[in-house]
Write a protein that binds this DNA or RNA. Structure first.
Length: 762
DNA sequence: TAGGGTAAGTTTTTT
DNA sequence: ACTTACCCTA
């Protein structure tokens, strides 16, 4: 015991007083308000390590994070801290969703889930909802599956069932539609033995709630495994608490009945409001948990002061903050660089070129990260990095697992585990072609709905669905095939199983037969999937098919190009939260990209966008570069961009503009005058040039042949009048001649694309 | 039933 | 731009 205590004290010796307080405080709930880079993960991991030193059983500790990445990082760091001293594997570390999935695998029968239930992603959800809407004769044109699912998701995030939807403040007809569909949707999921992401939380909370309510009543209460689960933990740690939504907060409470609770968060980094997260959660924590010890971490250990000053300049403009003063003693460092490029291709080339140079000079590729607001921006960058011969890791996005053939094979595997999963079964029933067409599937599906059973159940008795003899025969053949494959599960390892699936279903043969480049690529993707499975089996030798599928559905994709270990990281800012890098490139710093076009007229969302910018900037340790483009191909159209307001907020003392002028290139004196007044007038003076800016883009650079509409000379920024919409400003165009389309920003209507002949110059 | 062709919608962010 | 949905024909 004496050893344990000296160990504990040596651990905290390297911490500052506030961190130490967060680590050693015992006996009441702790709320740690931790600014970016203030060593919050350090505090958490040390707290866990210290708990182990004190003799707390690892399996009595629960650590919850928000993203899989953060969970992985947390586990790794705890392991590193405790290497050779403690058995850290038994600590529960995971995201809310993975923890719930784990609980439901064991205890899901209470909500109608078997231990092999499927987890539906948003594509799966949409296909279920589409059918639900059809069944209720609701036009999917007027009420999109996505839209209705959005309402359900909101409800689930707040722990509301179908009958509590009024509380969301929605009104008819959406209210009654959502209510009906919610019920049917849940019935369908239950019949499919499936849960969506929201269900993972909601089901778990229901089970734990019920267990606690009934505990005191029956004699068996104390033996209820769920009740025991809720009392299992002595210590619960929650990271990124500002991003929890009400249902997650309730889950935390339910899992910490007997536990000491330690939550960590930063109101300035709340970026999941759109997912139902409520910053108030962190503000109200002390009220919900009397006796809470509040600890503030304000010393930043990550970034140089130039970077911090930029971060502060951005976040300072938000209202309703708790307010923190971050400071750092790492020195000024390099100024934050601001660069304007011609288009997204040049932006990508620049980043790739710089990364190449840095790596050649000995920098670790892992120390470099490239951020963007939306996944759509990643492709060009990926492309240019590949050209520069740089390996990269792309987090999320249109992941490997989303590819058609990969989804197909995974659907097969999913069906082997849970044939009742209609979505997966429907996907593969006729792939490759087995002459089982829509008509047949629809008949079976209707029959299944009538009976309230799954499609698979209906397929096992094809004759009762009124199928023709030939169709019934084909179905029987398919059912037999699945039975055969299911018999193989558990008799061989996963990579082998996949090979059997691909062979016995004829999937590989079908691909191999149409001999074109595309199917060649698909075969290669299947090879890659097999490699993935081999890797998985090596890492977790005793894991089964269920474990693999759960990993795929919860962790989603991470694509790698080239060498896995030594790679530059590409990701959205959202997935960058909680991470840090020596060098960060923040790309696409243009209005309508970041801040995103959809939030421009919503001050509330704009504040969230600002926090997102704050998160992005504070990821950088030493070097930060913000890039933007004059024009960008977006949603299939070339848009002319103006610098993001977040760039305009940066203090000149801490920034350095490299290369081209940031103002939109003026075409005519008239446009130039407008440009200057429209943007921050002080902009020119705000920037310190360390070198003369390049000459402005030439006409040629800006797009070559400029369209002439009926002899009128067009230029960006010119005013045009539309009969119905009034005057607007020209921001871009495409096409030519009669099909010349103009993009015009109307003060009242927003951005519109109109045929040139409908407008005239002012 | 399948396959081709056209029309339409789609894109914020994550689990 | 890109994908999906639906419609029509073979």
């Amino acid at each position: 015991m004496g050893d344990a205590i000296s160990e504990a004290s040596s651990r905290v010796a390297s911490l500052n007083p506030a961190q130490r307080a967060a680590v050693v405080h015992r006996g009441s709930p702790v709320l740690v308000l931790a600014g970016a880079g203030t060593g919050k993960t350090r505090a958490i991991t040390h707290r866990v390590a210290t708990l182990l030193d004190e003799g707390v059983e690892p399996w009595r500790i629960l650590a919850v994070t928000f993203t899989n990445r953060a969970a992985g990082e947390m586990r790794e760091r705890i392991e590193r801290l405790c290497e050779g001293e403690h058995e850290t594997r038994k600590i529960w570390v995971g995201t809310f969703h993975s923890i719930c999935a784990r609980i439901l695998r064991q205890h899901g029968t209470g909500v109608g889930l078997s231990n092999r239930f499927s987890i539906y992603d948003s594509a799966d959800q949409q296909s279920v909802m589409r059918k639900v809407l059809d069944a209720h004769n609701i036009s999917t044109k007027m009420y999109s599956p996505r839209g209705v699912l959005g309402v359900l998701d909101k409800a689930k995030n707040q722990g509301l069932g179908p009958d509590d939807l009024e509380r969301l403040g929605i009104h008819d007809p959406m209210l009654s539609i959502a209510r009906k569909c919610y019920k049917t949707y849940q019935e369908r999921l239950r019949a499919a033995d499936a849960a969506d992401f929201g269900d993972l939380l909601l089901h778990t909370v229901r089970l734990l709630r019920d267990a606690q309510r009934t505990a005191g009543q029956g004699q068996l209460g104390d033996l209820d495994p769920l009740y025991r689960l809720s009392r299992r933990f002595d210590h619960v740690v929650v990271d990124e608490f500002q991003d929890t939504n009400p249902i997650q907060a309730e889950l935390v409470d339910l899992l910490s009945t007997d536990a000491e609770l330690c939550v960590v968060g930063d109101d300035d980094q709340a970026i999941y409001g759109w997912r139902g997260a409520d910053v108030d959660q962190i503000l109200r924590f002390s009220d919900r948990h009397p006796g809470t010890e509040v600890i503030r971490l304000e010393q930043n250990y990550r970034s140089t002061t130039h970077i911090l000053d930029c971060a502060d300049a951005i976040i300072r403009k938000n209202r309703g903050r708790l307010g923190k003063t971050l400071w750092s003693d790492l020195g000024e460092g390099n100024p934050v660089r601001v660069m304007m490029l011609y288009d997204e291709r040049e932006e990508a080339r620049l980043v790739a070129h710089e990364a190449r140079t840095a790596i050649d000079e000995g920098m670790e590729p892992e120390g470099i990260a490239i951020f963007y607001r939306t996944h759509a921006q990643s492709r060009v960058i990926e492309d240019e990095l590949r050209r520069a011969g740089i390996s990269c890791r792309i987090v999320g996005g249109v992941a490997f697992y989303e590819r058609l053939e990969v989804k197909d094979v995974l659907s097969y595997l999913q069906v082997l585990l849970n044939p009742n999963s209609d979505v997966h079964l429907t996907r593969i029933v006729n792939r490759p072609s087995r002459k089982i067409g829509n008509t047949t599937v629809t008949k079976l599906s209707n029959r299944a709905t009538e009976e309230g059973v799954s499609l698979w159940a209906a397929m096992e008795h094809p004759e009762s669905a009124g199928l023709g003899a030939a169709a019934a025969r084909r179905i029987r053949g398919f059912v037999e095939l699945i039975h055969q494959l299911r018999a193989l599960v558990g008799t061989m390892d996963l990579p082998q199983l996949m090979v059997e699936v691909v062979e016995r279903t004829g999937y590989r043969i079908a691909l191999a037969q149409d001999d074109n480049e595309e199917s060649q690529a698909r075969l290669e993707n299947l090879q890659e999937l097999q490699g993935n499975l081999i890797e998985f089996v090596e890492e977790r030798p005793d894991a089964g098919l269920d474990d693999y599928l759960e990993l795929v559905s919860l962790v989603g994709g991470e694509r790698s190009e080239g060498d896995r270990g030594r790679a530059v990281t590409l990701m959205t800012i959202h997935s960058a939260k909680g991470l840090e890098f020596e060098r960060v490139y923040l790309t696409g710093m243009e209005e309508r990209v970041f801040p995103h076009a959809r939030v421009l007229d919503d001050p509330f969302q704009m504040e969230e966008e600002r926090r997102l910018a704050y998160v992005a900037v504070t990821r950088a340790k030493r070097d930060l570069t913000l890039t933007m483009c004059r024009r960008r191909m977006l949603y299939g159209q070339t848009q002319v961009g103006t610098p993001s307001r977040f760039v305009l907020d940066l203090p000149s003392e801490s920034t350095n503009q490299i290369g081209r002028d940031l103002t939109t290139s003026p075409r005519t004196p008239k446009a130039a005058a407008r440009t200057v007044t429209r943007q921050s007038p002080s902009w020119q003076n705000d920037i310190e040039y360390d070198e003369a800016p390049d000459a402005p883009f030439t006409e040629d650079e800006l797009g070559g042949s400029e369209p002439e509409g009926e002899g009128v000379h067009l230029y960006i920024g010119m005013l045009l009048r539309h009969k119905a919409w009034g005057e607007g400003e020209l921001v871009g165009w495409h096409g030519s001649g009669r099909s010349l389309k103009l993009q015009i920003k109307f003060p009242t209507r927003g951005l519109k694309t109109v045929v040139a002949s409908f407008v005239e110059p002012v």
